[in-house]
């Protein structure tokens, strides 16, 4: 589904990703862990097409097509979803209007008729239950005045609405209390199918107790320095990142 080969990316001339290789197949859950500043969020943003980052080398194919050539909205319509680490507030733009536009753009891309207002509202009602999000939130402007936890739930709600093929969850656990974490993780698990894949970017092992990965990769200094099964996450929790840094330095 997703193949990343020797991916290098820079921001303001500074190289953050220094040769990432990764293969994600349908149905898989990959966790990308690593200390702060290792390039985790950069990888997530590069895959979603953020223009602040420049890809200086390497290639990324998604569903057989060159992902790097696609505009951010085309990547989204082709099935990439980024749950933002810091979802931005857009004053005055209602959640309903925002989601309706997004959903219908996706439908248009897939050759489907746009949803009628009533159909759309029904869909929203249905999906809201997945993340236990209240109507009060969806009646507000996009992310405006949402608490940290509400913003993250809202991200997963949007994921439920857009049904992506590849979901990238960027530090979705940060700022969540234990109940919110459970709700968010439940949401992600509910949306899981054998056809779609998930990349979970996280600093802590905590989230991985709820979303169990098939593979765990450690990103350090712009490279994946270690890959293994879910047991690696427990090892990192117990031993920290220092031993990885030492290994990488050797």
């Amino acid at each position: 589904m997703l193949t990343i080969k020797n991916l290098h990316a820079t921001i303001d001339g500074k190289e953050i990703l220094k040769g990432i290789n990764l293969e994600v197949k349908p149905g898989e859950i990959h966790a990308i862990m690593g200390p702060n500043g290792s390039g985790k969020s950069t990888l997530a943003n590069v895959l979603a097409g953020h223009e602040s980052f420049e890809v200086s080398e390497g290639e990324v194919t998604f569903l057989g097509e060159n992902l790097l050539e696609q505009a951010a909205e085309d990547r989204a319509r082709n099935g990439i979803f980024l749950s933002f680490q810091y979802p931005i507030e857009i004053p005055g733009v209602s959640m309903v209007n925002f989601m309706k536009t997004a959903v219908n753009e996706h439908r248009k891309h897939n050759g489907l008729e746009p949803l009628k207002a009533s159909q759309f509202l029904r869909l929203m009602e249905e999906k809201k239950k997945i993340v236990e999000i209240s109507s009060q939130l969806t009646n507000r402007s996009v992310n405006e005045g949402f608490s940290g936890g509400e913003k993250k739930r809202n991200e997963i709600f949007q994921m439920a609405m857009l049904e992506p093929k590849l979901a990238i969850l960027d530090e979705t656990d940060s700022g969540l209390d234990i109940d919110a974490l459970r709700i968010v993780a439940n949401g992600v698990n509910t949306l899981k199918t054998p056809e779609n894949a998930t990349i979970v970017v996280t600093h802590y092992q905590r989230l991985l107790e709820y979303i169990v990965p098939d593979y765990v990769h450690v990103l350090y200094n712009g490279r994946i320095v270690k890959s293994a099964g879910k047991e690696l996450a427990y090892e990192l929790e117990a031993k920290g990142y220092d031993w990885i840094k030492e290994e990488a330095a050797e």
Partner: peptide
């Protein structure tokens, strides 16, 4: 960032 957020949801 606001524009990118919308882009990421498939809005041009």
């Amino acid at each position: 960032d606001q524009v990118f957020y919308c882009n990421q949801r498939g809005i041009k």
